[in-house]
């Protein structure tokens, strides 16, 4: 798989052979096939997220990006292929268990409770075994804007603030692997840039990140590696600068 090796750290000459090397990949998908009601949407996806790196998964509508993330988080059972986390095959692991150990997925549409206040949304995360005070500390230190709005209902926050709240909730679990789906959905470019500044900050603290975007622009600035998905397959993978040229082709169906 030439595609696969392209996503691996260039300073590691070992190809993805059987042993040893796997430990450097926090997440690895091998030949993933997936279907909804027998309609296939993924046709053998290979994707690698090396430790302490940011990987961007790009592609047009309906390419299967969200499905790929759901498979990685244990929310969708693949019909074939393997999901490896830290070198261990975890097919069939319960999503809540993966989440408890430190895999955090922030879904498309953010997954916050619009009728609850910022504070109440954060309080929901106390199930991870931290007090509300600790969670608020984590959240407000990363996203000071939320502190000013702690009593506002989440539904009335701006789109960018809602996305911050979603990320704050995710950070409360102290994830080791963060999976983000279309962070930029419906947001102005300036806000998106601001959010990705925070993503970069999170990445610097050692969290590995897999992020899906439909449009490349901002995400390529923070990604270490990128992959382009079209029609349920990874078309190209590599360094962001290597891919920039291929991107327009992928969207135009070339």
């Amino acid at each position: 798989m030439s595609n696969l090796s392209a996503v691996e750290p260039p300073d590691n000459p070992a190809r993805s052979n059987e042993t040893g090397h796997q430990d450097h990949n926090l997440l690895e998908l091998r030949g993933i096939r997936a279907a909804y009601e027998r309609i296939d949407v993924l046709f053998g996806v290979d994707l690698v997220v090396p430790e302490a790196s940011v990987v961007a998964l790009l592609g047009p509508n309906g390419a299967g990006k969200t499905t790929t993330l759901r498979v990685a988080a244990g929310l969708h059972v693949p019909s074939a292929g393997d999901v490896l986390i830290a070198g261990r095959r975890v097919n069939g692991a319960k999503p809540e268990e993966l989440a408890r150990h430190g895999l955090c997925m922030i879904p498309e549409g953010r997954g916050i409770f619009p009728n609850l206040t910022v504070r109440e949304n954060l309080r929901m995360m106390t199930y991870v075994g931290r007090s509300l005070a600790e969670i608020e500390e984590i959240a407000y230190s990363r996203f000071p804007r939320l502190a000013e709005r702690r009593t506002q209902t989440a539904g009335t926050l701006s789109g960018g603030e809602q996305q911050m709240l979603a990320m704050a909730r995710g950070m409360a679990t102290e994830p080791a692997l963060l999976i983000l789906d279309e962070l930029s959905m419906g947001l102005a470019p300036i806000i998106v840039a601001e959010l990705y500044e925070m993503v970069a900050q999170v990445a610097r603290s050692g969290v590995s990140i897999l992020v899906v975007e439909q449009f490349a622009s901002t995400v390529l600035g923070v990604a270490d590696y990128a992959a382009i998905m079209v029609h349920g397959r990874i078309e190209r993978a590599g360094r962001p600068d290597e891919l920039a040229a291929d991107l327009s082709k992928a969207y135009l169906g070339g």
């Binding site: 926090l26 430790e51 830290a86 268990e97 993966l98 430190g102 080791a176 050692g206 590995s208």
Partner: peptide, 13 residues
Amino acid sequence: ERVQQFKQEIAEM
């Protein structure tokens, strides 16, 4: 450390 712990827990899961 966090990553190490994560790997450990996943291995024992």
